[in-house]
Write a protein that binds this DNA or RNA. Structure first.
Length: 404
DNA sequence: AGTTATGATTTCTC
DNA sequence: GAGAAATCATAACT
């Protein structure tokens, strides 16, 4: 029995090229009723006998896997675990649902081949058994043949065929594994997020630079906003654990994990990007801040000085700056200005810092320069308001650091 | 073809 | 269990 895989070429899926050929005289016995058959059979028996005992763990493993992958087991669609999982995973994403349907199609193909072959083998086994029985019956005219001998023969034949079946199962398993790795291993098929998605994530990242750790809800929200869909089926271990917590937000987590580490590693490299996104949200922030301040205070809240306003290249930057100063001053702490506004202020401060406008005006707060990375290289816990007000480390301490 | 960017996974630590 | 860091593997770019 040969069962090889053709996996060459780009789009060639593991199409098992199978060739059914029982050599070593096995099949020829069908047409041969001579006593030679006995020789052949006994030669089979030597190998067959030493093969397996009924509860073969290897076979069980194969059977389990085939069942789990939906190759064996219930005949049609719905019962197929893998197909169902693939269908579920494909969710709303249009592009990878194509892949998944392709995957399912290929799986069905493998399944069909498997069943066809299995049937063939079973049939062959039966026919062969019948032949041997007939043969034995014939022989019984010339020599005494005990029922035990017959039983033994049948056993040998069945064992031989089941070992062939095992090979078939093994090959099928391999084919499925290859198929899986081709279609479902996201590492192999990495897809970049859409530009829009990256934008949204970056926006969040840079406007929460003081604490870029989105909550679970925030992650889901972001995932939704980015219309990130599952680009990958949950890996088997995860599924079997029955965890339904494998969600799109994991992708967001990955993104933030990567972003944090890469940002921290080379702040310089991300400077430009940071400015860009900070500036992007600045306008919105300015409006929000202005609105908030206006709501809180009807008279003018400004402390007009700071000659640095001229260096801002943002519209209304002077006003923004003044408002910010007020907001970050002690007098405004504990006011109704909410956390969201605070984060927007963060953004504004960032822009200002990055545009070099912090020369003297900003009360010595370097909240955004080497950013909120503490001495250990970790992000400071900015959930505590104190980190906003306290003038911590000196400005520019790591600004020029692009070395590592 | 070589390089860089980036999403995912693995390993380790707390 | 979450996150950092290292690493892998592929997409995208030069």
């Amino acid at each position: 029995l040969q069962f090889t895989h053709c996996v060459s070429g780009n789009h060639n899926l593991p199409t098992p090229v199978h060739k059914y050929s029982l050599d070593s005289g096995g099949l020829r016995v069908f047409h041969c009723l001579s006593p030679l058959c006995f020789q052949i059979i006994s030669s089979l028996s030597i190998r067959g006998a030493q093969e397996e005992d009924p509860p073969d763990p290897q076979l069980m493993r194969l059977d389990n896997m085939l069942l789990a992958e939906g190759v064996s087991g219930p005949e049609k669609g719905g019962g197929s675990a893998a197909a169902a999982a693939a269908a579920a995973a494909s969710g709303g994403s249009s592009d990878n649902s194509i892949e998944h349907s392709d995957y399912r199609a290929k799986l069905t193909q493998i399944r069909q081949i498997y069943h066809t072959e299995l049937e063939k083998y079973e049939q062959a086994c039966n026919e062969f058994t019948t032949h041997v029985m007939n043969l034995l019956r014939e022989q019984s005219r010339t020599r005494p043949i005990s029922p035990k001998e017959i039983e033994r023969m049948v056993g040998i034949i069945h064992r031989k065929f089941s070992s062939i079946q095992m090979q078939l199962k093994q090959s099928t398993c391999e084919a499925v594994m290859i198929l899986r790795s081709r279609f479902l291993d996201a590492r192999r098929k990495r897809r970049n997020f859409s530009k829009q998605a990256t934008e949204i994530l970056n926006e969040y990242f840079y406007s929460h630079l003081s604490n870029p750790y989105p909550s679970e809800e925030a992650k889901e929200e972001l995932a939704k906003k980015c219309s990130i869909t599952v680009s990958q089926e949950p890996r088997r271990e995860e599924r079997s654990r029955g965890s339904d917590c494998w969600q799109t937000s994991v992708l967001v987590s990955n993104w933030f994990g990567n972003k944090r580490i890469r940002y921290k590693k080379n702040i310089g490299k991300f400077q430009e990007e940071a400015n860009l996104y900070a500036a992007k949200t600045a306008v919105t922030a300015a409006h929000a801040v202005a609105a908030a301040v206006q709501n809180n205070q009807t008279n003018s809240p400004t402390t007009p000085n700071s000659g640095s306003s001229g260096s801002f290249n943002l519209p209304n930057s002077g006003d923004m700056f003044m408002n910010m100063q007020s907001l970050n001053g002690d007098s405004y702490q504990g006011s109704q200005v909410g956390a969201n506004v605070q984060s927007q202020v963060d953004t504004l401060r960032h822009v200002i810092n990055q545009t070099g406008g912090y020369s003297d005006g900003l009360g010595g707060n370097s909240l955004y320069s080497p950013h909120n990375l503490n001495a250990n290289g970790g992000w400071q816990d900015a959930t505590t308001p104190s980190s906003v007000t306290s003038p911590t480390e000196g400005p520019g301490s790591v600004h020029s650091d692009t070395s590592n």
